Computed example of a mutant assay.
Amino acid sequence: MCCFNSFMAMSFMTTMRNAWGQIFTNDKAILSLTAMVMPVAGLCELGNCPQTTGCGVLRGSARPTLGANINLGSFYGVGLPIAVVMGFVMDIGLLGLWLGLLAAQVVCAIVMVIVVARTDWFVQAKKSRATDWY
């Protein structure tokens, strides 16, 4: 269901890229920038699905710190430097900032999927049974 919602959000953002900004302003420069970055924002939604699901799985398996560290490394260690370089050094501007966010989402989603896929669920089940929940 989560991935379906992500595809719907991406489709909406891509389809509405020329109309979305008009809800808020008539400024041609802002409308142009909004139309340019909406498809990238839509792609960020695709990365958000496995990232959020992976964080939930890690939280549910008593490893929230691992999920937080993956997010921290992805967004501040990868996404922020890419956004700064693309947005300001390469002078791509707003699109460069959004591409940095997209890079962070992609890295975070990939790492989350790898970590969850490599989880030994038998060990997790044993840990769960050994925990005193009351």
Rank of each mutant, 00 (worst) to 15 (best):
L43W: 11
L43V: 11
W98Q: 13
Q105S: 11
V106G: 07
K127I: 00
A104F: 10
F7Y: 11
K126I: 01
G100N: 07
A41M: 15
L97I: 14
C44P: 02
C55I: 03
A41W: 04
D27P: 04
R17I: 06
G60V: 09
T119V: 07
L99G: 04
Y76R: 02
F75W: 13
T53P: 00
D132H: 05
N71M: 08
S32R: 12
C2R: 06
N5F: 13
D120I: 05
V84P: 00
A19F: 08
A117T: 12
F24P: 05
G87I: 00
M16Q: 13
C55L: 12
I82D: 06
T15A: 14
A68V: 07
F4I: 14
V115D: 11
R17E: 10
M90I: 09
M36L: 15
A104I: 04
T131Q: 09
L95A: 14
V57W: 03
C2K: 01
G54H: 07
G100D: 07
D27I: 07
V84L: 14
W98D: 01
W98T: 00
Y76C: 03
E45W: 13
L80I: 08
G47F: 09
A125D: 11
P81A: 07
C55G: 14
V116Y: 11
M86W: 15
L33G: 06
T65W: 04
P39C: 12
V84M: 09
F4H: 05
F24N: 05
F12Y: 15
L94C: 12
A103E: 09
A19E: 14
N48W: 02
L80E: 02
C3M: 14
R59S: 03
L80Y: 07
D27S: 10
C3H: 08
V113L: 13
A35W: 08
T52P: 00
C55R: 02
A104N: 09
L46S: 06
A35F: 08
A130N: 06
